[in-house]
Write a protein that binds this DNA or RNA. Structure first.
Lengths: 228, 228
DNA sequence: GATGTCAAGATCGTATACGATACTATTGTA
DNA sequence: TACAATAGTATCGTATACGATCTTGACATC
């Protein structure tokens, strides 16, 4: 598990996780040399990983100018959320017809982990929230669907990093439980509606923050000045 | 257009086209050396291209065993078509709200090309049929949607190569015209239904066929290397 | 005849090297 | 002081080299 098949894979997964957990923020440069040094591999492997991340839209690569964590525009962000609703509707639609009790238990176990992580730091709970949706996709048994959902969930994490306010609170653990209930009932209409509502809520927690210029120190401190 | 920014890009597009036009058939091995020789570049650039194609599901890469044109199973094929319906429903849904008369004309011009290509050889008309759907996605103005549709249309071409009978006849030019009509009317229900019917028909033309044994990869690529 | 073993060849993963391109900071000039 | 030219640095694109892994076929053994 720790040791991937190839070093490129290892780099790929590490960078991916770092981006999803928002350790690497949108717009941050990703120089091949620096990454290679850090992981103790050559640029070759790093390049390989960056190409893959670029293919799934997590990093931008501009010829001769290097790679950087992608910075979706607000317009793209809305598109991606719209696409996500489309795909996850498909997921729950399929699951309503096929899901078993043991799979439902698996989902509940995952949510239990999410609850446990709520108290701890943000990155973990953010990742778990995303993985819940990926788990849903996996239960459909459709590999292409898993790939698309994984990809789009990652990109949504990126978007939340860009546009959400610092503390979005509990990331919809309750809503995940509601979703499980709906799936257990097996009614596609209800399940899709709950999913729709959940994704709407996730998106709603996002708020426009001007991503363009470096945040002005006064605006950052204004919030703290109040409590001083 | 002919000269890409980087050689990797050139290889990527050439291989992609070769796969979509079914010059490279599913299961065919893609040795880095042979491809590099044919295009006059080193393995480095070829690898880069193969990684990208792997990311979009057109080629399989197994560690230390090389790359090969992907061979979707029948089950995966059905999944992909199902996903395609899901995505393209989204496309026509959006277009009904936004499409302009000049864009409709653009679509009609494309279909005209398709009609012209009907008499000529198969590869061209097959590619144009796919590009019609990509053009539809582009008209939504949503880059992510374009990416997903492009990707999935490519994979459908692959699937048709695997499972369709040799001559599928005219690849739904009439249906494309019907779709344009529906879009012009601007009624989402009708348009989605027409799209659904069209994609169902495309899928229906698919039938299992035994993928024969392999011709030499160099002779196939000699034609593609020229235009790279 | 079937199966296991092993060596030779093919192919890949990765490191390194070199030329090319883009960025940066300094200097000179208006 | 403001701006343009330029040199220097950083970073990338690509080629090549070497060790590692896999495949293939021959041969020995059961």
């Amino acid at each position: 598990m720790d040791t991937q098949a190839t070093r490129s894979d290892a780099i790929y997964y590490s960078l991916r996780r770092a981006i999803i957990e928002q350790a690497l923020l949108p717009g941050m440069k990703l120089p091949e040399d620096a990454i290679g040094d850090q992981f103790g591999v050559s640029r070759t492997s790093v390049r390989n990983a960056l190409v893959r991340l670029n293919a799934e839209g997590l990093v931008d690569i501009r010829p001769n100018r290097g790679a950087a964590v992608a910075e979706p525009t607000l317009e793209e962000a809305l598109d991606i959320f719209s696409l996500r609703r489309c795909l996850e509707r498909e997921v729950v639609g399929r699951l309503c017809r096929s899901i078993t009790e043991s799979e439902l238990a698996e989902l509940e176990a995952h949510v239990a982990e999410e609850e446990k992580a709520m108290d701890t730091s943000g990155p973990l709970s953010m990742r778990l929230a995303g993985e819940f949706h990926i788990l849903l996709a996996e239960l459909t048994g459709s590999k292409p669907l898993v790939r698309y959902v994984s990809e789009i969930v990652s990109r949504c994490s990126l978007i939340l990093a860009l546009y959400s306010r610092p503390h979005s609170g509990k990331c919809g653990v309750d809503e995940h439980l509601q979703l499980i209930d709906a799936l257990r009932k097996g009614d596609p209409e209800t399940a899709m509606h709950v999913m729709e509502h959940h994704l709407g809520a996730v998106q709603e927690r996002a708020q426009i923050r001007d991503p363009g210029d470096a945040p002005d120190i006064r605006s950052i401190l204004s919030e703290y000045a109040r409590t001083a």
